[in-house]
């Protein structure tokens, strides 16, 4: 049984602009997404800004409620949970945010901040809390002596370690990490990626790893999904996606990565143009205005999301 099953998940946001006096304009941020995640595995989600990847993470955590679709998590209907039931199950699904500065309370000592979930979920007392805090700090590679400090006394990388400590404190089954390293320097980024992998291996957590950096996503993920204007356009085992991409958008994204020193030199190309506004997505295949291979049917018919090889799904007429 899969850890997480997502079916036809959809979220529209109304804009203040109106189409007519009856109807507001809307952005479909997440458009009928379906996927599974197995225990202990990582699904990477990549895409350009505005593609809906952050909304997807928020929907899974129910920080934003979907308009339609279903989510099963740990075998139960995750969207049916309400109030206290939802709160008590939240311990099983936790999130790591992009900006560790903004996600830690500046007036709370870090020892308290990282053990707050344990107080909420397990009613931990003061003594237990201190013990847990020390253990958590060690797990994320911070000195136990820093427990009584405040967030501003830590560097960006250390703050991200604190954010991770808090997220894994309840031993969640699923961790949603939204751009956890995009504000960090390369040397620190490597430390945090290694830490996330280590913690995942120790606890056997599943992970949704959302990022715009294709190299980082490949390094972290078993499966990678490419998102464009609210939809998945391709999903495959990491190796297959990077070595034999089927969707023209995936190919274009991959060609835009500058080759790292030591890799075969080539010109970074990338797709032409920029993504259209999600409030007025093109008809047919959403990628057709930028697609070098488009055919007449791409302009009118939306391609189906279909499996072209085991575990390799694409939404493209030509794949």
């Amino acid at each position: 049984m899969a850890l997480l099953e997502v079916r036809e998940l959809t979220k529209r946001f109304a804009l203040s602009r109106r189409k007519s006096w009856l109807e507001r304009e809307a952005v479909t941020a997440v458009n009928r997404l379906s996927f599974d995640l197995e225990e202990g595995r990582t699904l990477g989600v990549v895409g350009e800004s505005g593609c809906g990847k952050t909304t997807l993470g928020k929907l899974l955590l129910r920080l934003v409620e979907p308009d339609s679709g279903g989510v099963r998590f740990l075998g139960a209907d995750w969207l049916a949970l309400r109030g206290g039931d939802l709160r008590s199950r939240r311990r099983d699904m936790q999130m790591v945010f992009q900006d560790p500065q903004a996600s830690l309370n500046p007036r709370m000592r870090v020892g308290e901040a990282i053990t707050e979930p344990l107080v909420i979920h397990e009613g931990l007392g003061a003594a237990g809390r201190a013990r847990a805090a020390g253990a958590l700090m060690e797990r994320v590679g911070l000195p136990g002596s820093a427990l009584r400090r405040y967030p501003h006394e830590f560097s960006g990388g250390q703050r991200q370690r604190l954010g991770i400590a808090r997220a894994v404190s309840t031993r969640p089954r699923l961790l949603v990490a939204d751009e956890p390293v995009s504000s960090l320097d390369v040397s620190i980024q490597a430390q945090i990626l290694n830490l996330l992998k280590d913690l995942q291996r120790q606890d056997g957590m599943g992970m949704i790893f959302i990022a715009h950096d294709l190299r980082v996503v490949e390094f972290m993920s078993d499966q990678v999904a490419v998102m464009y204007l609210g939809r998945f356009v391709e999903q495959a085992p990491s190796r297959a996606l990077y070595t034999s991409p089927r969707h023209p958008y995936t190919r274009a994204l991959l060609s835009a990565i500058p080759p790292a020193p030591g890799e075969e030199p080539r010109e970074a190309e990338g797709p032409e143009g920029e993504p259209p506004s999600p409030s007025a997505p093109p008809a047919g295949c959403p990628f057709h205005p930028r697609c070098p291979l488009k055919e007449p049917r791409c302009e009118s018919q939306a391609p189906e999301w279909r499996e072209v090889e085991p575990e390799h799904r694409v939404a493209c007429h030509l794949a």
Binding site: S187, R215, E218
Partner: peptide
């Protein structure tokens, strides 16, 4: 050397070499 080793390479697996500490 450390900076170069920290870069995730396509197709690489396992752990990244990392520079410990910070600037």
């Amino acid at each position: 050397r450390g900076l170069l080793a920290c870069l995730p390479r396509l197709g690489a697996q396992g752990r990244l070499a990392s520079l410990e500490g910070q600037v």
